[in-house]
Write a protein that binds this DNA or RNA. Structure first.
Lengths: 112, 112
DNA sequence: TTGACATATTCCTATATTGGAATATAATGC
DNA sequence: GCATTATATTCCAATATAGGAATATGTCAA
């Protein structure tokens, strides 16, 4: 068996750094392909291909306007990733607690 | 060029579903390999290989105890993923706002 | 030392991928 | 219809992968 397809789910789709950059550009609002091409500075076919993967996995939607294709982010599809990573949030929270604790202990020591 | 290596960063490492399952098992605390093998029900070499990827990318640490190797999660390495996905949090927040708004509007209509 | 246990590594195959170059498709305006 | 603009698709190469099977490495215990 090979690695899972990039279009299997959001986890696989966003593994590619460039696709994350595309999504970041689309976070501010929908854009036609050429806009992205200029904003990112990549060859047009490359942008189209990455958009294709994102579309297949549902992370973006496409709307046709004349000869342009306007892409819009569909952030809902990121929710599973968000939820999964969030389930480890407590690790950082604990870390922050420990830092806070130590700071408070030190402050207490100082006041003695 | 081929796809980025799974060991390039956490995004690529956790793209594989099975590796996410491994991390979930390790979330409750460190475990030796055989523990994971039994908990997951996969062939031992497969577990070792996935642990190898996770270790290479820093998502887990390994400690030797007798003939066992105890693996422990290093959640810090998930932080970049957390931060990136979190930057899209507002999308769901807005969605929740809209749902809430609609609910309140309906409640208001009812009270008239 | 030998055997048993715990884990890692190697070899294999099938498969998907990214980027680049070239080309195809589709819509517009004249 | 024709040229132009906007975008997608195809073909190619190199590469990395996951799983399975077999095997190697390392450690303990008698």
């Amino acid at each position: 068996m090979a690695r899972a397809q990039t279009t299997l789910d959001s986890f696989n789709a966003i593994a590619e750094h460039k696709r994350r950059l595309v999504l970041e550009k689309l976070a501010d609002g929908e854009r036609p392909v050429n806009d992205l091409v200029h904003a990112l500075g990549w060859p047009q076919p490359q942008v189209s291909k990455h958009l294709g993967v994102l579309k297949k996995v549902g992370l973006v939607n496409e709307r046709r306007v004349g000869r342009q294709r306007v892409y819009r982010m569909n952030a809902d599809r990121l929710k599973p990733v968000y939820e999964w990573v969030k389930s480890f949030e407590r690790f950082w929270q604990h870390q922050l607690d420990r830092i806070k604790e130590r700071a408070e202990r030190k402050a207490k020591e100082k006041s003695h």
